[in-house]
Design a protein around this nucleic acid. Structure first.
Lengths: 134, 134
DNA sequence: TATTGTTATACTCTATAACTATA
DNA sequence: TATAGTTATAGAGTATAACAATA
């Protein structure tokens, strides 16, 4: 009867996951949000700053600071778009790609630990259900 | 292959839910966080400010401002704890209880709309899986 | 000494508005 | 006129530190 609300469950699930992914990413010098940007950049097709921001659902002004930080760490690079000089192409550097490989494995492990309370099928199911909602 | 990360799914699920519950609560003059506090206060047993804060996983300093706001709206009341004068008992007022009744129905409807993409069994299952994780 | 509530303060995350340069 | 990126700024939401009252 002491039912917890869906918003509470989603928020605290995300908080708990963050407590696992945060430390897992620390050795790579990035936080969860930066990992999210790099993850969105992993496709071989280059993307403009705005495209990445929209893919992640963050504001383009927020994106500026994120790319600034990642560029300072030599993990991504901006270069002008050949066909439209208003746009920046944002790409992972070689070092960024290497970092992402390791970081992605660390995040995989953190997610696995987060989902450890659920049997394998249920973990897969949870991801699928959320995917259908978002 | 374009897999979205679990943190992304949880965050955006919560954002989407908030976009539904926010407007649903507007007629009741409260936001989602205030609803959360009132929901935690619905049990007949009185609770101290700190107990409620811990139940919700929010800081006690944050709790002060939340209770201040709800008290200004005459939805909750503080009274001294009879046995321990350091503590405040926080309780719903009559008006607070009436408001919560309506607000809870509005939030139920918003959650239902949020979960509409899932067949009934899956909606129940999602809640259960999250409940086991948090 | 430790705990509860409070206040002042600061930090993180994010968005809005205004600007520059391109289209 | 509209778009991409940038900057400055402001607003949530939250936490830390210090204090008063009480245990």
């Amino acid at each position: 009867m002491s039912r917890r609300r869906l918003a509470y469950l989603l928020k605290h699930a995300n908080l708990r996951l963050g407590e696992l992914t945060g430390p897992a990413l620390e050795p790579y010098g990035i936080d969860g949000r930066e990992f999210g940007v790099m993850w969105a950049l992993r496709a071989p097709e280059p993307a403009s700053q705005l495209e990445v921001a929209q893919r992640l659902g963050i504001d383009r002004t927020t994106m500026v600071a994120m790319v600034d930080a990642l560029e300072r760490k030599k993990l991504v690079e901006r270069r002008p778009h050949p066909g439209d000089r208003r746009k920046n192409i944002v790409e992972l550097t070689g070092h960024g790609r290497d970092t992402l490989d390791g970081a992605a494995r660390a995040v995989d492990a953190a997610e696995e630990e987060f989902l450890a309370a659920l049997p394998g099928d249920d973990a897969r199911l949870l991801r699928e259900l959320l995917d259908r909602l978002v």
